[in-house]
Amino acid sequence: MLVETSLETETPQVLPVSVAAVIVNYGTAELVVQCLDSLQETRNECDHLQVYVVDNASSDNSVEEIQAAISERGWSEWVELMCAPSNGGFAFGNNVGIRRALAGDDPSMGAVWLLNSDTIVRRGALESLLQALETHPQAGIVGSRLEDRDGTSQRSAFRFQTIGREWARGLNLGLWFKLFPGAEVAPVQVDQEYETDWLAGASMLIRREVIDDTGLLDEGYFLYYEEVDYCLRAARQDWRTVYVPTSRVVHLVGQSSGVTSRDADHRRLPKYWYESRARFFTQNYGKMSRILADISWLTGHLLYRGRCLLQRKSITFPRCLVRDFVRFNFWWPSRVG
Protein backbone atom coordinates (compact mmCIF):
# COMPACT_ATOMS: atom_id res chain seq x y z
CA MET A 1 0.00 0.00 0.00
CA LEU A 2 1.28 3.44 -0.89
CA VAL A 3 1.75 5.81 2.00
CA GLU A 4 1.51 9.60 1.88
CA THR A 5 0.77 9.52 -1.83
CA SER A 6 -0.72 12.64 -3.36
CA LEU A 7 -3.98 11.74 -5.07
CA GLU A 8 -4.80 12.86 -8.56
CA THR A 9 -8.21 14.42 -8.99
CA GLU A 10 -10.66 12.06 -10.66
CA THR A 11 -14.09 12.64 -12.12
CA PRO A 12 -16.42 13.01 -9.14
CA GLN A 13 -19.03 10.31 -8.73
CA VAL A 14 -22.56 11.05 -7.60
CA LEU A 15 -22.60 10.29 -3.88
CA PRO A 16 -25.49 10.46 -1.40
CA VAL A 17 -24.84 13.35 0.96
CA SER A 18 -26.93 12.27 3.92
CA VAL A 19 -24.53 11.72 6.83
CA ALA A 20 -24.88 10.01 10.20
CA ALA A 21 -22.52 11.30 12.90
CA VAL A 22 -21.74 9.22 15.99
CA ILE A 23 -20.45 10.75 19.23
CA VAL A 24 -19.64 8.50 22.19
CA ASN A 25 -19.92 9.96 25.66
CA TYR A 26 -18.58 8.74 28.97
CA GLY A 27 -18.85 11.39 31.65
CA THR A 28 -18.17 14.30 29.27
CA ALA A 29 -21.59 15.91 28.92
CA GLU A 30 -20.23 19.45 28.74
CA LEU A 31 -17.88 18.50 25.91
CA VAL A 32 -20.68 16.72 24.02
CA VAL A 33 -22.93 19.78 24.21
CA GLN A 34 -20.06 21.97 22.99
CA CYS A 35 -19.47 19.60 20.05
CA LEU A 36 -23.18 19.54 19.16
CA ASP A 37 -23.29 23.32 19.28
CA SER A 38 -20.45 23.48 16.75
CA LEU A 39 -22.39 21.14 14.44
CA GLN A 40 -25.37 23.45 14.02
CA GLU A 41 -23.88 25.26 11.01
CA THR A 42 -22.45 21.98 9.69
CA ARG A 43 -25.98 20.80 9.01
CA ASN A 44 -26.03 23.08 5.96
CA GLU A 45 -23.05 21.22 4.42
CA CYS A 46 -25.04 18.13 3.45
CA ASP A 47 -28.63 17.27 2.59
CA HIS A 48 -29.24 15.82 6.01
CA LEU A 49 -27.10 15.34 9.11
CA GLN A 50 -28.37 13.01 11.81
CA VAL A 51 -26.33 12.84 15.00
CA TYR A 52 -26.40 9.86 17.35
CA VAL A 53 -24.97 10.51 20.80
CA VAL A 54 -24.24 7.23 22.56
CA ASP A 55 -23.83 7.36 26.32
CA ASN A 56 -21.63 4.49 27.45
CA ALA A 57 -23.35 3.96 30.81
CA SER A 58 -21.84 7.07 32.39
CA SER A 59 -21.77 7.05 36.17
CA ASP A 60 -22.63 10.76 36.42
CA ASN A 61 -25.59 12.84 35.23
CA SER A 62 -24.45 12.91 31.60
CA VAL A 63 -27.69 11.53 30.18
CA GLU A 64 -29.85 14.10 31.96
CA GLU A 65 -27.52 16.99 31.06
CA ILE A 66 -27.25 16.08 27.38
CA GLN A 67 -31.00 15.40 27.04
CA ALA A 68 -31.77 18.74 28.69
CA ALA A 69 -29.50 20.56 26.22
CA ILE A 70 -31.11 18.77 23.27
CA SER A 71 -34.59 19.73 24.46
CA GLU A 72 -33.82 23.30 25.50
CA ARG A 73 -31.91 24.16 22.32
CA GLY A 74 -34.33 22.53 19.92
CA TRP A 75 -31.93 19.89 18.63
CA SER A 76 -34.28 16.93 18.86
CA GLU A 77 -34.98 17.07 15.11
CA TRP A 78 -31.39 16.10 14.28
CA VAL A 79 -29.86 14.71 17.51
CA GLU A 80 -30.81 11.40 19.11
CA LEU A 81 -29.45 10.35 22.50
CA MET A 82 -28.97 6.64 23.01
CA CYS A 83 -28.04 4.80 26.20
CA ALA A 84 -25.74 1.79 25.90
CA PRO A 85 -26.50 -0.99 28.42
CA SER A 86 -22.90 -0.99 29.67
CA ASN A 87 -19.54 0.64 29.11
CA GLY A 88 -18.15 -1.78 26.59
CA GLY A 89 -15.49 0.64 25.36
CA PHE A 90 -15.10 3.18 22.60
CA ALA A 91 -15.53 0.77 19.67
CA PHE A 92 -18.57 -0.75 21.38
CA GLY A 93 -20.19 2.66 21.83
CA ASN A 94 -19.50 3.69 18.25
CA ASN A 95 -20.98 0.43 16.98
CA VAL A 96 -24.21 1.14 18.90
CA GLY A 97 -24.52 4.39 16.96
CA ILE A 98 -23.44 2.89 13.63
CA ARG A 99 -26.01 0.10 13.91
CA ARG A 100 -28.71 2.66 14.62
CA ALA A 101 -27.62 4.71 11.60
CA LEU A 102 -27.63 1.69 9.29
CA ALA A 103 -31.07 0.66 10.54
CA GLY A 104 -32.54 4.11 9.87
CA ASP A 105 -35.12 4.90 7.22
CA ASP A 106 -32.87 7.19 5.15
CA PRO A 107 -31.84 5.28 1.97
CA SER A 108 -29.48 8.12 0.97
CA MET A 109 -27.30 7.76 4.08
CA GLY A 110 -23.93 7.50 2.38
CA ALA A 111 -21.37 7.94 5.16
CA VAL A 112 -20.84 7.63 8.90
CA TRP A 113 -18.86 10.35 10.66
CA LEU A 114 -17.09 9.31 13.85
CA LEU A 115 -16.49 12.31 16.12
CA ASN A 116 -14.86 12.45 19.52
CA SER A 117 -16.79 14.23 22.24
CA ASP A 118 -13.77 16.51 22.77
CA THR A 119 -13.97 18.09 19.29
CA ILE A 120 -15.23 21.41 17.97
CA VAL A 121 -16.08 21.29 14.29
CA ARG A 122 -14.97 24.24 12.15
CA ARG A 123 -17.17 25.56 9.34
CA GLY A 124 -16.69 23.58 6.11
CA ALA A 125 -15.16 20.52 7.82
CA LEU A 126 -17.84 18.07 6.72
CA GLU A 127 -18.17 19.57 3.25
CA SER A 128 -14.44 19.06 2.65
CA LEU A 129 -14.63 15.43 3.73
CA LEU A 130 -17.61 14.77 1.45
CA GLN A 131 -15.84 16.46 -1.45
CA ALA A 132 -12.85 14.18 -0.90
CA LEU A 133 -15.07 11.10 -1.10
CA GLU A 134 -16.68 12.41 -4.29
CA THR A 135 -13.37 13.34 -5.91
CA HIS A 136 -11.57 10.11 -5.02
CA PRO A 137 -13.85 7.10 -5.50
CA GLN A 138 -11.11 4.79 -4.22
CA ALA A 139 -11.07 6.62 -0.88
CA GLY A 140 -13.18 4.83 1.69
CA ILE A 141 -12.07 6.66 4.83
CA VAL A 142 -11.23 10.36 5.01
CA GLY A 143 -10.13 12.34 8.04
CA SER A 144 -9.79 15.91 9.22
CA ARG A 145 -6.87 18.13 10.10
CA LEU A 146 -7.01 18.13 13.89
CA GLU A 147 -5.82 21.31 15.55
CA ASP A 148 -5.60 23.26 18.79
CA ARG A 149 -7.98 26.12 19.49
CA ASP A 150 -5.39 28.57 18.12
CA GLY A 151 -5.16 26.65 14.83
CA THR A 152 -1.89 24.85 15.56
CA SER A 153 -1.92 21.55 13.66
CA GLN A 154 -1.85 18.22 15.48
CA ARG A 155 -0.51 15.00 13.99
CA SER A 156 -3.54 13.28 12.47
CA ALA A 157 -2.17 11.01 9.72
CA PHE A 158 0.05 8.04 10.50
CA ARG A 159 1.86 4.95 9.22
CA PHE A 160 1.00 1.48 10.42
CA GLN A 161 3.14 0.21 13.27
CA THR A 162 5.55 -2.56 12.35
CA ILE A 163 8.44 -4.31 14.09
CA GLY A 164 10.95 -1.90 12.55
CA ARG A 165 8.89 1.15 13.36
CA GLU A 166 8.46 0.00 16.96
CA TRP A 167 12.26 -0.08 17.27
CA ALA A 168 12.49 3.43 15.84
CA ARG A 169 9.66 4.68 18.02
CA GLY A 170 11.36 3.37 21.14
CA LEU A 171 14.80 4.69 20.10
CA ASN A 172 13.40 8.15 19.28
CA LEU A 173 16.59 9.25 17.50
CA GLY A 174 16.34 12.10 15.02
CA LEU A 175 19.31 10.83 12.98
CA TRP A 176 17.62 7.47 12.53
CA PHE A 177 14.52 9.13 11.10
CA LYS A 178 16.68 11.20 8.74
CA LEU A 179 18.42 8.06 7.49
CA PHE A 180 15.19 6.06 7.32
CA PRO A 181 12.29 8.56 6.90
CA GLY A 182 9.79 5.76 6.42
CA ALA A 183 10.49 4.51 9.95
CA GLU A 184 8.49 7.25 11.65
CA VAL A 185 4.94 6.32 12.64
CA ALA A 186 3.87 9.98 12.92
CA PRO A 187 5.55 11.81 10.02
CA VAL A 188 5.33 15.55 9.45
CA GLN A 189 2.10 16.36 7.64
CA VAL A 190 1.89 18.37 4.45
CA ASP A 191 -0.89 20.82 3.66
CA GLN A 192 -2.52 18.81 0.87
CA GLU A 193 -4.72 15.77 0.48
CA TYR A 194 -2.73 12.56 0.44
CA GLU A 195 -3.13 8.87 1.04
CA THR A 196 -1.96 7.61 4.39
CA ASP A 197 -2.12 4.36 6.37
CA TRP A 198 -4.45 5.44 9.16
CA LEU A 199 -6.05 8.51 10.66
CA ALA A 200 -6.81 9.67 14.17
CA GLY A 201 -10.38 8.64 14.90
CA ALA A 202 -11.38 11.98 16.44
CA SER A 203 -12.91 13.04 13.10
CA MET A 204 -13.13 10.24 10.56
CA LEU A 205 -15.74 9.90 7.79
CA ILE A 206 -16.37 6.35 6.57
CA ARG A 207 -18.09 5.59 3.28
CA ARG A 208 -21.08 3.30 3.83
CA GLU A 209 -19.75 0.75 1.35
CA VAL A 210 -16.64 0.39 3.51
CA ILE A 211 -18.81 -0.65 6.44
CA ASP A 212 -20.61 -3.11 4.18
CA ASP A 213 -17.25 -4.60 3.11
CA THR A 214 -15.29 -4.35 6.36
CA GLY A 215 -17.94 -4.59 9.05
CA LEU A 216 -18.10 -2.68 12.33
CA LEU A 217 -15.29 -1.66 14.64
CA ASP A 218 -13.64 -4.46 16.60
CA GLU A 219 -15.17 -4.35 20.08
CA GLY A 220 -12.21 -6.29 21.45
CA TYR A 221 -10.49 -2.91 21.71
CA PHE A 222 -11.72 -1.12 24.81
CA LEU A 223 -9.98 2.14 23.92
CA TYR A 224 -7.15 2.99 21.48
CA TYR A 225 -5.99 1.22 18.31
CA GLU A 226 -9.56 0.60 17.12
CA GLU A 227 -9.16 3.15 14.30
CA VAL A 228 -5.72 1.76 13.34
CA ASP A 229 -7.19 -1.71 13.09
CA TYR A 230 -10.19 -0.49 11.10
CA CYS A 231 -8.09 1.38 8.54
CA LEU A 232 -5.91 -1.69 8.06
CA ARG A 233 -8.94 -3.93 7.62
CA ALA A 234 -10.39 -1.49 5.07
CA ALA A 235 -7.07 -1.36 3.20
CA ARG A 236 -7.17 -5.14 2.89
CA GLN A 237 -10.53 -4.66 1.16
CA ASP A 238 -8.78 -2.28 -1.31
CA TRP A 239 -10.16 0.90 0.23
CA ARG A 240 -7.82 3.86 0.65
CA THR A 241 -7.51 6.25 3.56
CA VAL A 242 -7.04 9.95 2.83
CA TYR A 243 -6.01 12.91 4.98
CA VAL A 244 -7.99 16.08 4.15
CA PRO A 245 -6.37 19.22 5.64
CA THR A 246 -9.12 21.58 4.44
CA SER A 247 -11.42 19.81 6.90
CA ARG A 248 -10.48 21.48 10.18
CA VAL A 249 -11.60 20.22 13.57
CA VAL A 250 -10.43 21.44 16.97
CA HIS A 251 -9.37 18.51 19.14
CA LEU A 252 -9.10 19.16 22.85
CA VAL A 253 -6.46 16.45 23.15
CA GLY A 254 -7.28 13.70 25.62
CA GLN A 255 -10.04 15.53 27.48
CA SER A 256 -12.46 12.69 26.82
CA SER A 257 -10.09 10.07 28.30
CA GLY A 258 -7.26 11.88 30.07
CA VAL A 259 -4.68 9.40 28.76
CA THR A 260 -3.21 11.44 25.93
CA SER A 261 -3.75 14.94 27.29
CA ARG A 262 -0.67 17.13 27.22
CA ASP A 263 -0.69 17.64 30.97
CA ALA A 264 -0.75 13.86 31.48
CA ASP A 265 2.84 13.03 30.49
CA HIS A 266 3.59 11.56 33.89
CA ARG A 267 0.33 9.67 34.35
CA ARG A 268 0.39 5.90 34.31
CA LEU A 269 -0.96 4.37 31.11
CA PRO A 270 -3.98 2.15 31.80
CA LYS A 271 -3.89 -1.60 31.30
CA TYR A 272 -6.31 -1.35 28.37
CA TRP A 273 -3.75 0.70 26.39
CA TYR A 274 -1.29 -2.20 26.51
CA GLU A 275 -4.08 -4.67 25.78
CA SER A 276 -5.17 -2.72 22.70
CA ARG A 277 -1.62 -2.52 21.36
CA ALA A 278 -1.10 -6.25 21.94
CA ARG A 279 -4.41 -7.05 20.25
CA PHE A 280 -3.53 -4.98 17.19
CA PHE A 281 -0.24 -6.77 16.58
CA THR A 282 -1.56 -10.25 17.38
CA GLN A 283 -4.76 -9.91 15.34
CA ASN A 284 -3.06 -8.43 12.28
CA TYR A 285 0.48 -9.84 12.25
CA GLY A 286 0.48 -12.87 14.54
CA LYS A 287 1.73 -13.64 18.04
CA MET A 288 5.40 -13.98 17.07
CA SER A 289 5.37 -10.61 15.34
CA ARG A 290 3.85 -9.08 18.46
CA ILE A 291 6.64 -10.53 20.61
CA LEU A 292 9.29 -9.23 18.21
CA ALA A 293 7.61 -5.82 18.17
CA ASP A 294 7.60 -5.78 21.98
CA ILE A 295 11.29 -6.65 22.13
CA SER A 296 12.08 -4.05 19.45
CA TRP A 297 10.29 -1.22 21.25
CA LEU A 298 11.65 -2.15 24.68
CA THR A 299 15.26 -2.42 23.43
CA GLY A 300 15.02 0.89 21.59
CA HIS A 301 13.38 2.61 24.54
CA LEU A 302 16.02 1.42 27.02
CA LEU A 303 18.73 2.74 24.70
CA TYR A 304 16.85 6.04 24.52
CA ARG A 305 16.73 6.27 28.31
CA GLY A 306 20.43 5.50 28.50
CA ARG A 307 21.17 8.26 25.99
CA CYS A 308 19.07 10.72 28.00
CA LEU A 309 21.07 9.89 31.13
CA LEU A 310 24.41 10.33 29.36
CA GLN A 311 23.30 13.64 27.83
CA ARG A 312 21.67 14.71 31.10
CA LYS A 313 18.36 15.34 29.39
CA SER A 314 15.34 15.81 31.60
CA ILE A 315 12.64 13.68 29.98
CA THR A 316 9.27 12.90 31.55
CA PHE A 317 7.88 9.45 30.86
CA PRO A 318 4.52 7.96 31.91
CA ARG A 319 4.88 6.45 35.37
CA CYS A 320 5.95 2.79 35.54
CA LEU A 321 6.17 2.67 31.72
CA VAL A 322 8.87 0.01 31.41
CA ARG A 323 7.59 -2.06 34.34
CA ASP A 324 4.01 -2.04 33.01
CA PHE A 325 5.15 -2.75 29.45
CA VAL A 326 7.04 -5.85 30.61
CA ARG A 327 4.27 -6.91 32.96
CA PHE A 328 1.39 -6.63 30.51
CA ASN A 329 3.25 -7.88 27.42
CA PHE A 330 5.48 -10.63 28.77
CA TRP A 331 4.14 -11.72 32.17
CA TRP A 332 0.45 -10.87 32.17
CA PRO A 333 -1.93 -12.45 29.62
CA SER A 334 -3.42 -9.61 27.58
CA ARG A 335 -6.91 -9.64 26.13
CA VAL A 336 -6.00 -10.26 22.52
CA GLY A 337 -8.47 -12.98 21.58
Rank of each mutant, 00 (worst) to 15 (best):
V253F: 06
A125G: 07
D263Q: 13
L303F: 14
D118S: 09
N172E: 07
G254F: 12
Q154F: 10
V63F: 11
R240N: 02
P270H: 02
A139C: 05
V32R: 03
D265M: 13
S108A: 14
L292D: 01
A20G: 10
R290K: 11
Q237Y: 04
L173C: 13
A111D: 00
V242Q: 04
L115G: 05
S156H: 01
Q138K: 10
C46E: 10
W198C: 03
E226W: 10
S38H: 06
H251W: 12
M82A: 08
D294I: 07
A68K: 13
R236V: 01
I70T: 04
R279M: 02
S314A: 15
F317H: 13
E209I: 05
R312H: 13
Q283G: 02
L36K: 02
L232I: 01
N25L: 05
R123A: 14
Y52M: 12
I295Q: 09
L252A: 03
V14R: 11
V112A: 11
F222D: 00
D197G: 03
S247F: 06
G89N: 10
V188C: 04
A183D: 05
Q50P: 00
E8I: 09
L303T: 04
R100H: 11
V185T: 13
Q13A: 15
R159E: 03
D263F: 10
L133G: 00
N25W: 08
I98V: 15
R268Y: 01
R236C: 09
S6G: 02
Q311K: 14
L310N: 01
I211F: 01
E227I: 02
R73N: 15
W273D: 01
R122T: 02
G174I: 09
M82L: 14
R277E: 06
V33K: 01
V190W: 14
R335E: 11
A186I: 04
L321E: 05
L303N: 02
K287E: 11
T316D: 09
